[in-house]
Simulated scan of single mutants.
Amino acid sequence: MKRWKTHIGLLLRYCAKMHPAMAPGGHVIVQLSSGKEYRVSVKQVIIDCDPGIDDALALFAAFASDRLFIRGITTVAGNVPVTLTARNALALCTLAGQDIEVASGATGPLEGEVHTASDVHGQNGLGDVELPLTGQISTRGADQLLYEELIKAGGELEIIALGPLTNLAILLERHPDVQPYIKKLTLMGGSLGRGNVTPFAEFNFYADPLAADRVLRSGVPIVMFGLDVTNHALLLPDQIDEIESWGGPVLTPLVQMIRFYQKFYKSKGMDGLKMHDPLAVAGVIDSRLTEGQAYALGVETKDRDTLGKVCILEDPRTVHVCLKVHQEKFSPLFMNLLKSYQM
């Protein structure tokens, strides 16, 4: 299965470079040497992220999925500064053997001070695990890569945003004509209930509340994976032990990151991990993992006490908020994706 998936990925990447229209957002028919045909649903995506240990887990899940064709990765300041998030994304691609363009983006929020989470993710963002690096950061900036690839894909490209929404807000401000080309934006951020940085705000929205507000009000079709649902998507201690037992040159450093992340959760009274970013990626792979409902949303940008709080509006409902996760479906999907790296 892993080799079959790799061949599909290489084929789609070649087609996208040579003939962009040939990398379809719908279905690909793959014929094996036996003559048997498989109809595979493939979504074209760009992943905007701020790696981050949970970003790393999400990226590895995305790399392993035969349902996603990743046209690029863009990075933003968030868990650590953008110089590190771009390097981390490229290093994770190197570790996983992925040839994907990585573009660096916003160095901080649209307004206000930079907030990071190195206490959670380590000084380098990856649990202080040092990874080898090959290749170079793209000469295209994040908003340029997003704009050009969205236009090239002709409305078949989705965005998965796992960090602060600064790059997306900049994209929509600089290129308002791009909005109809965004098939869907799936984001991890926000909460209709309690936050995790303040009682009101989740980290990604708190890190750039103005960007979050502009994106949520933009009219782009959005699926939101906030704390309401990601707090209930878990990686349990026995599953961490199982991943560690698989071993190999890819999973060993990844488990070292997980163990670092686990120390943070243990300090909060938990043995397992909350799978914030991986659930968002898994939800793109299989939309049946969660349930939710549509809202019109904005974000508090003025009041310092409630900065980053999600506000329910009476505008047209363009944001589907995921509220319930089927852990019994999410867990095996995620574990099987990571197991594909087993040596």
Rank of each mutant, 00 (worst) to 15 (best):
C15V: 02
A16W: 15
G141Q: 09
V178N: 08
V321D: 00
L273Q: 08
I258P: 01
G155D: 10
S118W: 04
F225N: 04
L145D: 03
A106P: 13
Q262I: 11
I222M: 06
L323W: 03
G35Y: 04
I29V: 15
A21G: 15
D99K: 14
K184W: 03
E156W: 05
G163R: 00
E242A: 13
L10G: 01
S33F: 09
D66R: 08
Q262E: 10
T83N: 14
G52S: 10
M257C: 04
H232I: 02
M18E: 14
G189V: 07
K274W: 12
E244T: 12
P176M: 09
F60S: 06
T301C: 05
C311E: 15
I285H: 06
I47V: 14
E314D: 14
G292L: 03
C322F: 01
G292M: 08
G122H: 06
G154L: 01
G108H: 08
N88C: 07
Y181A: 12
L227P: 07
P81R: 01
G272K: 13
P278N: 06
S331F: 05
I243W: 11
R288H: 14
A62P: 01
M335F: 13
F225I: 01
K268G: 06
Q136T: 15
A61H: 06
A282V: 11
I159R: 05
S331T: 13
E149D: 13
Q144C: 12
T134N: 08
A282E: 14
P221R: 00
R317W: 01
L273T: 09
L254V: 15
L187E: 05
F225R: 07
M257R: 00
E202Y: 04
F205A: 13
S331D: 14
G25E: 03
L126N: 10
E202G: 12
I29N: 02
Y261A: 06
E158M: 12
V30Q: 07
G155I: 09
R71M: 09
H121P: 01
F203L: 12
K268F: 07
V120I: 14
A16C: 00
S218G: 03
A61V: 01
M335T: 10
I73T: 04
H175I: 02
T74A: 03
V220Y: 02
L171T: 04
H232F: 14
L92I: 12
I285F: 09
Y341C: 11
L110A: 03
K268T: 03
W4A: 11
V215C: 12
H326F: 14
K183E: 13
E156D: 14
